[in-house]
Write a protein that binds this DNA or RNA. Structure first.
Lengths: 224, 224
DNA sequence: ATCCTTTTTCAGGAAGGAATGAAGAGATGG
DNA sequence: CCATCTCTTCATTCCTTCCTGAAAAAGGAT
């Protein structure tokens, strides 16, 4: 069974504890955040969350805004907790990309059932979009990369390229293969473009750049 | 190369062609069906499909119903293509046994990636090009050579040459044959070039260099 | 068997070329 | 406008190839 990691966001400590208790009891790993700002930081710095459960009303950054921020980069499922009076905002939320609503007060059974349904749907049981190798942590869902815990900024192509390398760790990849794997199917440009991106990627990876090996006369290989 | 057979079901010919093109380009064998009924017939009469990709909205028999029919008898992976507006039906589909969703419009990259992921998951092992003989371990995929567990660095040609030797272990190989097997077909240089590479290869192989025997007046032979 | 000649292979090195890395200028798209 | 992507150019590194001379193997003659 996958130990799914869930981020619970609420300004009321009592409510957080309640939700956390239910989820932990159901076998999930839970991290708490007291407001949207903290949640945002945790989400993008720590990464690896399979689900976010957030309250609507919060200081600093409310649930809507948090959803918006997360959706900029990630497709992680989001469950929103609403008080009865806020129900009419649901439509608003679905447009923003909220996956599910749970009205307060809720029963623990409902909460866990919804969480399980969503995780089953999203993950299909496995294939958590998190790749981990050689001290590099790549979260495809959240679109973040960490090296030894420190997040690094990658451009879109760089991210895709690194993901491709990590998915094919240990395999020798020709430039053609890489082009087919990372670039659009109708790209018929210069294979040397791969070189450029590898160079930039290596630079941003610091020491770990050495993990991308050059295979002379052949291509590249990621070797953790 | 695994020639997986995929059934693509969609009522729009344009979409079918698009999907087919991507998959064929990725090395798959594709059969098309214009609606659920036709797909059903093909699936159960022809058989042998490794994966089904189907649209949701179709005349006669839609994607859900097709899934239900197939699931009566088969566990073949099913990928469903959905328009944005149908997204909320996903839960429904997972219960029916759909393995994956891809929202239209999608990028070919996504499509092929999902297909590969699913086939990898389902089919399990693929043929790894690993040669093993006389304490020498040669992995064509990873482009790695190990002698008694210790990795050694070979240049491109050296690697190809050793692979050729190992694939033809025990056979006497003339220089001509080796040139044809390892060098480009349009190479018309000196056959003595083989000697040089054998020399370097032997040097890098240490003791094991003796496994490449000289056949005087004829050529070489790899004898583990 | 030993020696010599011829032929073939081996060893080292030099020349040339090909592949890669670095840096930067257009192009492109949000 | 800025970040990103792509392509070009130049410099560098590394590999391939070929050349020379030496060593080894085969065969014949003494």
């Amino acid at each position: 069974m996958n130990e799914h990691k869930i981020l619970v966001v609420d300004d009321e400590a009592r409510m957080r504890k309640l939700v956390k208790d239910f989820l932990v009891r159901a076998g999930y790993s839970v991290v708490e955040a007291a407001d949207g700002m903290e949640a945002c930081d945790l989400f993008f710095d720590t990464g690896g969350f399979d689900l976010v459960i957030t309250d609507v009303m919060m200081p600093k950054l409310d649930g809507w805004e948090l959803t918006r921020q997360i959706r900029e980069y990630s497709k992680v499922p989001i469950i929103m907790l609403t008080a009865k009076s806020e129900e009419h905002d649901e439509l608003n939320g679905f447009e923003l990309g909220v996956d599910e609503y749970i009205a307060k007060p809720f029963s623990p059974k409902i909460l866990v059932a919804r969480v399980e349904a969503i995780l089953r749907r999203a993950g299909g049981g496995e294939a958590t979009d998190v790749l981990e190798a050689g001290g590099i942590h790549l979260d495809k869902g959240a679109h973040i990369v960490q090296i030894d815990g420190a997040p690094i900024d990658l451009s879109f192509k760089e991210f895709e390229l690194l993901a491709y390398f990590m998915e094919n760790a240990g395999l020798a990849l020709s430039r053609e293969k890489i082009l087919n794997g990372v670039w659009d199917y109708d790209y018929f440009g210069d294979a040397r473009t791969v070189d450029t991106h590898v160079k930039k990627l290596r630079a941003k990876m610091g020491d770990k750049g050495d993990l991308i090996k050059t295979i002379w006369g052949m291509g590249y290989k990621f070797e953790p």
